[in-house]
Nucleic acid binder design. Structure first.
Lengths: 201, 201
DNA sequence: TGCAAAAATGCAGTCAATGCAATTATGTTC
DNA sequence: GAACATAATTGCATTGACTGCATTTTTGCA
């Protein structure tokens, strides 16, 4: 108990402040725009010194992306859980379903961030960069799963396609005002690509 | 003639200097790394004042990407040329074939840039950002071609997938040492997605 | 309470990028 | 070929993100 509490307190404070920074930053970004908000303003609003900001976030961009990284990491976990006998595309479909429903639970939070992301090139670029990182590791996992050699194009193709599907669905979901549930959209897109793009929808 | 020559001179000088900046920059990036090379060094090496650099390139990143934007623009032109009766995925396949062979003609130049791009997060991010821009316009074109409404997910899905295919193929081509021709790889990937990812290769 | 580790902070500095004003080069016109 | 309008180059000052380093404060534990 003492151990949990002791290390827990530091950790908790750290998480709280990180969260606070995110929150005030998002508010300011929405009010004044990303570029017109300075690190100085953000840290002041969070009650911290400017220098301290950088021990919580490596860059201003990362304020908006927050747990983006963590969330995509769950795809890999989910992928690991799929039986090895399952065809690769099916396994991907199942894994992405998990993340899709995760997303759907936090619509409001997500939408605010997405708005800022779409309006701010540097942030958008950073999000794509993160995605590219996962595409890479996802491809590595798939290569293992498919027992594919380094000159087998399939892992890369599958990873790239799956993330493209996710991104396109997410964007569609957000721009159409969430008329259809995200998981449904994602599944439909995976199905379409499973059947083949030569086929009519 | 006089007109062509007159305006031509200014334009030509401008293009030459732009080119010179690119070239010296690539050399320096390869030698010292992107981040350790300053705008000051680049402009000095090109015989220009630092301030002048920014009338040729909006950012340091763009030095590496060069004609990236222009090249992707050809996809759209090619797409316009495909008969409207051709199924969308076939039209995309044909359009991307054009760009794929374009790439293949400039392997050396391309590879140097790709190395820097892969090694430099900010540059890579910027390239993805450019691609995202094209994905957007490509989707718009496809929407017109398919006569699709704003809540039809197909244009976005097709655009995202096609660019994913291109990116994955390009990466595969470069990392496998160009053992197979790029157009072949791209066609194979398009075919695979046409047949459907549920099918075995 | 006292101590060691961790976190916060201040300060100085680098570098990309921008705005503005002044200067220089270029192409055209007479 | 000289004067002139325009475009390009340049210098200067400034902003703001980000980093390294040294110092101070806070925190959890003995």
């Amino acid at each position: 108990m003492s151990v949990t509490e002791s290390t827990g307190l530091r950790e908790r404070n750290k998480r709280e402040r990180r969260r606070r920074l995110e929150d005030v930053a998002i508010d300011l970004f929405e009010r004044d725009g990303f570029d017109k908000t300075t690190i100085e303003q953000i840290s002041a609003a969070a009650g911290l010194a400017p220098r301290t900001f950088f021990s919580y976030f490596v860059s201003k961009d990362d304020l908006v992306l927050g747990d983006y990284a963590e969330r995509l990491g769950r795809i890999l976990e989910a992928l690991e859980r799929q039986p090895i006998t399952m065809p690769a595309w099916d396994a991907l479909r199942a894994s992405f379903a998990v993340v899709a429903s995760d997303y759907a639970t936090e619509v409001d939070r997500l939408i605010r961030r997405f708005r800022i992301m779409s309006a701010t090139p540097s942030v958008y670029a950073r999000s794509l960069q993160l995605q590219a990182g996962w595409e890479h590791t996802l491809a590595a996992h798939l290569a293992a799963r498919l027992d594919a050699g380094p000159d087998d194009p399939r892992p890369r193709l599958l990873a790239a396609t799956a993330l493209a599907v996710m991104r396109a669905s997410l964007q569609h979901w957000l721009t159409t005002g969430q008329t259809q549930p995200l998981p449904t959209l994602v599944q439909a897109a995976f199905d379409q690509l499973g059947r083949g793009l030569d086929q009519d929808p």
